[in-house]
């Protein structure tokens, strides 16, 4: 009794991923970052767009910025300038693989082998969550009602993607 359409998993082009953390004078630092990035940093558990950048809250006082590869170095420099001595930034582009899952049944898919309530109404576009699915650490960023980005370390990705492909195939069969 699952209402679904065909689920698709799309591995998108790689971008530049920058992780940064604020450790002191947070208010002023957040202001500087907002100016540098063109928008306020997302709150706890949220994500947002800023032009061609995707901003994702990661951990307390820690964010992830996804930038087009071509602008990566410039964005990193801008963030480092805004952080000044109140925080640090690192390029972690190779540390995570992003995959986009499309189809309205992404919520169901993500409950398979997991412990997180991906079916909650409150987990909508602009929400992020980190959890563990099929033993793999996963960070989720809801793009729209029918799209979600999942970030996972590349070493776990082959197993996890295979797991999702199998689960999606089952869901698609059940939906028919």
């Amino acid at each position: 009794m699952i209402d679904t359409q065909m689920l698709k998993r799309v591995t998108p082009e790689t971008g530049r991923l920058i992780r940064f953390e604020i450790w002191s004078d947070a208010d002023a630092c957040l202001d500087r970052l907002a100016k540098a990035l063109g928008t306020e940093l997302p709150q706890t558990g949220k994500s947002a767009n800023a032009g061609d950048l995707r901003l994702v809250w990661l951990e307390p006082m820690t964010w992830l910025v996804r930038a087009p590869e071509a602008r990566g170095a410039a964005v990193l420099a801008r963030i480092e300038e805004a952080l000044a001595s109140d925080g640090g930034a690192c390029d972690i582009s190779g540390a995570l693989v992003r995959t986009r899952i499309t189809g309205p049944a992404w919520r169901t898919l993500l409950t398979i082998g997991g412990v997180f309530d991906a079916e909650a109404d409150t987990f909508g576009p602009g929400c992020m969550a980190a959890t563990v699915i099929a033993h793999a650490p996963v960070r989720l960023d809801v793009i729209s009602k029918t799209e979600i980005d999942a970030y996972t370390p590349p070493s776990y990705a082959p197993d996890l993607f295979e797991f999702w492909d199998h689960a999606a195939a089952r869901l698609n069969l059940q939906a028919r």
Binding site: T44, G45, V115, V132
Partner: peptide, 10 residues
């Protein structure tokens, strides 16, 4: 306090 109610597995 940041993520809400979550399973011990995390």
């Amino acid at each position: 306090p940041h993520c809400g109610p979550r399973a011990q597995a995390e």
